[in-house]
Design a protein around this nucleic acid. Structure first.
Length: 576
DNA sequence: TGCATTCGGATATTGTCT
DNA sequence: AGACAATATCCGAATGCA
């Protein structure tokens, strides 16, 4: 076993119990919360109804306002807007068969045989065998254009859109158009075509006003030549409020279209390329994101933005409060911590491990000089320790955090990810929620759902949302979890079977969550009370040097999946 | 302008199994 | 020996702030 926190000598005051719960006892005598498990009765039925749903209507005019239209070199925003409006007018082609949306390869593992059978009926072969390689190309430009177009069509089809509509959207917008534009173009055509998106009288007027507003804003912004209106990050990054801290009262009025059901909660990295959060916010019903750095709640930084329609009053943190400093979290490191290392907290816990040789190099560098080492050496060591989150575990000896230490810092039960590969553990944990932060936000729901809730968990990862709800003592009647990684599903499944009595329905591929399946599921379980998830940030993360292309990259279509699914759920539930 | 921070990815190397 | 998996190493820039 790794020489985790402390040893035999008084050091280890942070402990996990064997029940899979997190227990934090700084004084050794405190009684950690232990959610009373499995004691709630089944309480079926919809739990909450707020206002009527405000489903998204056609967003054509939004394209300009949202700054999503980049110069394609073919006429600019004005003419493209005309094009989009024209498409909207002719977009109601009855020959388009929505039900034919091709659906590939959902591999559903679930406890509910009925739902499983229903969804498995849609099973089809995967399309992963597509090969882009084309060695004998005669005309590279032509082929490249073709492949780009095909790729986008395929992506849209994988997302559940009819192929006809995907093709038409690309014809209208051009193959260089961002995925977001294509998606909303298809949405806009659907809006005026079927009841899910477009039959809400009054909403049309309302959103038209909103669109005009956005368009005007965009025109104003265009003086500055950029479509990307920046979203300023708060400093300090404390969100709307914090536990046990009285901040200025936040006047947060949700747009009417943002009010549930269901409640929803979306998360992503705070420091994203310019314009990304503006776009995310505008897609998610113009809700102002809540930016929080988890360093105010635990010993590690984690700057994230959260877009949600949860109430922000009556929040309460998980108890016991997690340690906020490195020494409190890992007291044994104090013995070896040099006075010239001023760190009190960790930087963001990342997905990959620093090279092990750093330990050797730092030890070597320090062993060569006297006790306070020269400034130059100090600077090198500090810089390395900061970027790699190294801790002092011996004389002149630093080490990377162990996976179980990351579990602890992030609020997961001990050994939550144990049993999978070490690099997988780092990756999954680095991609995870900070449980205490999310639980603090979700805590407002506790009293609203005394009989439990149904949850749609998108991009679940290792189940940060589920763990947060569990630690809040909120019962999960049914969780439909979408997660592509088998390893992560294994982690969530094993945790679920040990701690929960509700039903976990696993979905591998977000693309398989079509409108039909969502509707079927919603009717079976009585609706979702919470849609929660953070879309993968590969295209947004600061550490990514290769494909940091905001919301236009291929993988960022996952955000639009979130949007599509959320909007569909809102629409269906708005009619219930 | 300089500094600190950042839910990463491609490739090379080593380890393991058959 | 060779396929495959696991691990190790190398690589940079966008963003915001002082």
């Amino acid at each position: 076993m790794a020489d985790r926190v402390g040893g035999s000598d008084d050091g280890d005051k942070s402990e996990w119990n064997s029940d899979g719960e997190v227990a934090r006892s700084l004084d050794g005598a405190g009684s950690p919360i232990a959610p009373s498990r499995n004691k709630l009765k089944d309480a079926p039925g919809p739990s909450l109804l707020v206002n009527g749903a405000g489903p998204s209507a056609s967003l054509v005019e939004d394209f300009v306002g949202m700054g999503l239209i980049k110069g394609n070199g073919d006429g600019g925003a004005e003419s493209l807007l005309e094009l989009l409006l024209a498409y909207k007018a002719i977009g109601n082609d009855p020959s388009l068969d929505k039900s034919s949306a091709s659906v590939c390869g959902p591999r559903t593992i679930c406890d509910d045989k009925d739902i499983l059978a229903n969804w498995d009926a849609h099973d089809a072969s995967t399309s992963s065998d597509r090969d882009h390689a084309s060695d004998d190309s005669g005309d590279e430009d032509f082929l490249q254009g073709l492949s780009q177009k095909d790729e986008k069509i395929e992506s849209l089809v994988r997302m559940g859109f009819p192929k006809d509509e995907a093709e038409m959207a690309i014809v209208r917008c051009g193959q260089d158009a961002p995925m977001s534009v294509l998606i909303d173009l298809i949405y806009s055509s659907e809006a005026s075509e079927d009841g899910y998106y477009g039959n809400f009288s009054g909403h049309e007027d309302d959103s038209f006003g909103g669109r005009k507003e956005k368009r005007k804003r965009s025109e104003d912004a265009e003086q500055g030549s950029s479509h990307d209106e920046p979203m300023p990050l708060p400093n300090p990054m404390v969100g709307f409020n914090l536990p046990n801290v009285s901040l200025r009262s936040v006047d947060r009025s949700l747009p009417s279209k943002a009010i549930g059901p269901p409640f929803f909660y979306y998360e992503n990295v705070a420091i994203a390329p310019k314009g990304v959060w503006t776009t995310i916010s505008q897609f998610l019903y113009d809700i102002q994101p809540e930016f929080v750095d988890s360093r105010f709640l635990c010993a590690a930084a984690r700057k994230r933005g959260y877009v949600h329609n949860l109430p922000i009053e009556n929040r309460s943190p998980l108890l016991p409060l997690p340690p906020k400093t490195i020494f409190e979290a890992f007291p044994h490191t104090k013995k070896w911590w040099p006075s010239w290392d001023p760190r009190k907290q960790f930087n963001c816990l990342l997905t990959s491990m620093a090279k092990p040789k750093l330990t050797e190099q730092i030890h070597h560098a320090l062993a060569k000089c006297k006790d306070p080492p020269p400034r130059r050496v100090q600077k090198y060591v500090l810089e390395t320790c900061r970027t790699a989150n190294l801790v002092w575990v011996g004389l002149n000896k630093v080490a990377h955090l162990e996976p179980d230490e990351m579990e602890f810092l992030l609020g997961f039960p001990k050994d939550h990810t144990r049993g999978i590969g070490r690099p997988e553990r780092f990756k999954s944990l680095g991609n995870s929620f900070h449980v205490d932060t999310v639980a603090y936000h979700l805590s407002a729901l506790r009293d609203m759902f005394p009989h439990g809730m149904n949850v749609l968990s998108l991009f679940s990862g290792i189940g940060g949302a589920e763990v947060a709800l569990h630690r809040l003592d909120i019962r999960m009647k049914t969780v439909v979890s979408v997660e592509i990684s088998e390893t992560n599903r294994f982690v969530l499944r094993t945790w679920w079977n040990q701690t929960q009595t509700g039903t976990l329905i696993e979905i591998t591929d977000v693309q398989s969550l079509t409108t039909e399946r969502l509707e079927s599921c919603i009717r079976r379980i009585g609706g979702f009370d919470l849609v929660i998830g953070g879309s993968p940030c590969n295209n947004l993360a600061g550490r990514n040097r290769f494909h940091r292309d905001g919301l236009e990259g291929e993988q960022s279509s996952l955000f639009y999946h979130y949007y599509r699914i959320l909007d569909t759920v809102k629409s269906i539930m708005g009619r219930m």
